[in-house]
Design a protein around this nucleic acid. Structure first.
Length: 433
RNA sequence: GUGGGUGUAGCUCAGCUGGUAGAGCGCUGCGUUGUGGUCGCAGAUGCCGCGGGUUCAAGUCCCGUCACUCACCCCA
């Protein structure tokens, strides 16, 4: 029988690396919860039209990267390529936009883009994202950015930077767009780039090829063409970022691939990841909600790439985050000891102590080896001798010390807990020094 | 979607100019009594990605294919 492989470009996370993946996802979302964002659980597929209208038909994402199919009711369905459009749809459908504002939400889960896979670029990718809807207050802009910054720092990441700019609004961007197109028409560009200049001229500014970049040195920038309100807003955001303690780079040529962004736009970049260096990004969107049939509300949000953030942690040598799978490993010696060991296991788990048991009636030697592989700091041994004396042997795996404890559940669990507390305190001390 | 690289034990990889496979780590066992992590000894494990071709002979050369990977592009 031939083995079956995963679909192209779809990653598996298996132990021990899956522990780090889970840890990264937890830390990123913890940062959102800490800032008053509420969890929203959304479907992984939506009506295709949602993304066409929300993300924009001129984007690469919609034009060539969506997983679209027809379901049994002949409806066009698409696996979500990003999170914001789905959140907007759910907010409108559940009338959250009619309630108290701003609506602050966070989400996490898989997204799908049919791109050519690469290191850090997968067809199923994982994001943690937030959206704050219904306020144009610059505090929200700064908070959202600070929240992402804090999320990365909580993992210990230091070697990343934040690119920041303002893309203007419906009032000032069209005029700038014309100005830029006028400039681009004087440049010597290839056919593809010329077409891009028609559809989305801002993206040409981001071209990495030297031949193109050289011609664009004197190109007009959005940042110099902001209208009065946009300029004021951007100034405020930067001022507040100082207070939040966030540092950034001015990145006037930065462009995002989704059409809906206006005003504040940002991207977190990790230079050690090669071509796929964006570990998270987002920005403000003014017209999106109305475009999808909701209220005229502005919002701002981001998506943080869990896959790439994990790669960044690995690049900075922060992994593995933890090698400990369980706290206690229980070893029964002899068939007669199995049942008392199981009831011990039950008591440990009920007390919230992560515990596992040695199976297959292994010899003490190989059982200890198995214990060692779990990285459990404590081992409980129960054999004929212990049964005779109504005791259990507890062994500290780091020091090798062991002692005999009473087998009365309550005192035994208390003693195990005390041992764990001491070990945890010591490891914490070590980490700090 | 376009171009380059790689594909050998569970993992990381070696295998020169073609002669039917190796290391380290890991794994299993042993070093006599109920003790792991160190050390020593022994052992198991390979459709050499898949399909075809050249050749007396292919892991080694050629073609195709798939997967991974790097860059472009795009983005998380």
């Amino acid at each position: 029988m031939g083995a079956i492989n995963a679909p192209k470009g779809v990653p598996d996370y298996v132990p021990p690396r899956s522990r780090d993946f889970y840890f990264v996802q937890e830390r990123l979302s913890a940062s959102a919860r800490l800032s008053g964002y509420e969890y929203i659980e959304l479907p992984v597929f939506e009506a295709t039209e949602l993304f066409e209208r929300g993300v924009g038909t001129s984007t690469d994402v919609v034009q060539k990267e969506m997983y679209t199919f027809t379901d049994r009711g002949d409806r066009s369905i698409t696996l979500r390529p990003e999170g914001t459009a789905g959140v907007m749809r759910a907010v409108i459908e559940n009338r959250l936009d009619k309630g108290s504002l701003p609506v602050k939400l966070w989400y996490r889960g898989p997204f799908f883009r049919a791109e050519r896979p690469q290191h850090g670029r997968y067809r199923q990718l994982q994001q943690v994202g937030v959206e704050a809807i219904g306020s144009v207050d610059s505090i929200i802009d700064a908070e959202v950015i600070a929240l992402a910054d804090q999320a990365y720092r909580s993992l210990g990441l230091t070697n990343f930077h934040l690119d920041l700019t303002s893309l203007g609004c419906a009032r000032c961007r069209p005029a700038y767009r014309l100005k830029l197109q006028e400039f681009l028409s004087t440049c010597d560009l290839d056919q593809d780039t010329r077409e891009r200049a028609e559809v989305n001229p801002l993206r040409v500014l981001d071209d990495k090829r030297e031949i193109v970049a050289a011609q664009l040195i004197n190109a007009p920038l959005m940042i110099d063409s902001l209208c009065e309100p946009c300029q004021q807003h951007y100034d405020q955001v930067r001022e507040l970022l100082h207070i939040f303690g966030v540092r950034w780079n001015e990145a006037p040529r930065m462009v995002r691939g989704l059409d809906y962004y206006t005003r504040t736009t940002f991207e977190f970049v990790h230079p050690d990841l090669g071509a796929q260096s964006g570990i998270g990004g987002g920005g403000r969107y003014d017209g999106l909600m109305a475009e999808l049939g909701g209220s005229e509300l502005s919002g701002i949000g981001f998506g943080l790439g869990v896959d790439r953030t994990l790669l960044a942690c690995e690049a900075e040598g922060l992994t593995p985050f933890s090698s400990r799978i369980i706290d206690v490993f229980v070893i029964p010696l002899g068939v007669e000891s199995r049942e008392p060991c199981i009831s011990l296991l039950v008591h440990l788990r009920a007390a919230g102590i992560a515990a596992d048991i040695c199976v297959d009636n292994r010899s003490i030697k190989s059982a200890m080896k198995a214990a060692n592989n779990t990285n459990a700091p404590l081992v409980l041994i129960l054999g004929p001798d212990e049964r005779a004396s109504r005791s259990v042997v507890i062994k500290n795996m780091a020091s090798g010390e062991q002692q005999s404890l009473s087998n009365e559940p309550r005192t035994l669990i208390a003693a195990v807990q005390e041992n764990l507390d001491t070990i945890n305190r010591d490891t914490k001390k070590e980490e700090q020094s």
